[in-house]
Structures are given as C-alpha cells and as structure tokens.
Amino acid sequence: MEVPFAVMVGVLFASGLYLMMQRNLMRFVFGLLVLSGSVNVLIFTAGRLTRGAAPVIPAGLSTPAGEVANALPQAVVLTAIVIGFGLIVFTLVLLLRVYERLGTVKTDELGDALVRLDDEDEV
C-alpha cells in the first residue's frame, strides 16, 4: 500500500501546488485545500499503515490488545485538519474582502489596484 499512498500524496501535492501558482486567487485557495490534504495523508502514512485496529483500549484491559494503529500521527493530523479549516476560511474571507475592496482576485492586478485605491483615498 505504500506505493499507492506515495502516488496519492504526490499527485495531491502537485495538483495543489499547480493551483496555487496561478493568477486566480480562488484557484489558489482550492490549491491550498488540496495541498493540506496531501500533507495530512503524508504525515498519516509516515506513522505507518495499520488496518482494523483503532488506537483504542478495550474495556477491561489497561493496554491495547495486540498491535494497534499509531495514535501519535492521528492526533497530529486531527488538529491539523481543524486548524486547516480555520486557515482556509480565513483565507477565503480575506479573498472575499480583497475582491470587494479592489474589484479583482487576479494576483498580478492586486498591486495596481492597491495603488489606485490609495490614490482614491487621498482624493
């Protein structure tokens, strides 16, 4: 399973980056989403893959019964997913504000739009 996982991580990473390297900021946000998914899976995979044995200790025992999945990367990725949510929404709202204020979401037009805005503010 490691090879398919590597392929999945790689394709997601490349797709995310490609989307981020474009002038359309909405595509940038989508890229960021795909990229964080890729990294989450990468960290998860690095903790090794285990099937069917969730890191939960059965009632009556004080240690896991037999081999269970690695809990550490799961905990790390869990917070990463939630934080990623906060980050994405913040970015989206920032983007929305940029559009409302500057009238564009094209990366190469933002600089000029900002200058125009400053000029208008001075007037």
Partner: peptide, 8 residues
C-alpha cells in the same frame, strides 16, 4: 509532487 512521493 515527485519529490514528496519519493520522500513518502
């Protein structure tokens, strides 16, 4: 992507 896949 290739690099990350190899790293994985």
């Amino acid at each position: 992507g290739l690099l990350i896949a190899s790293l994985t």
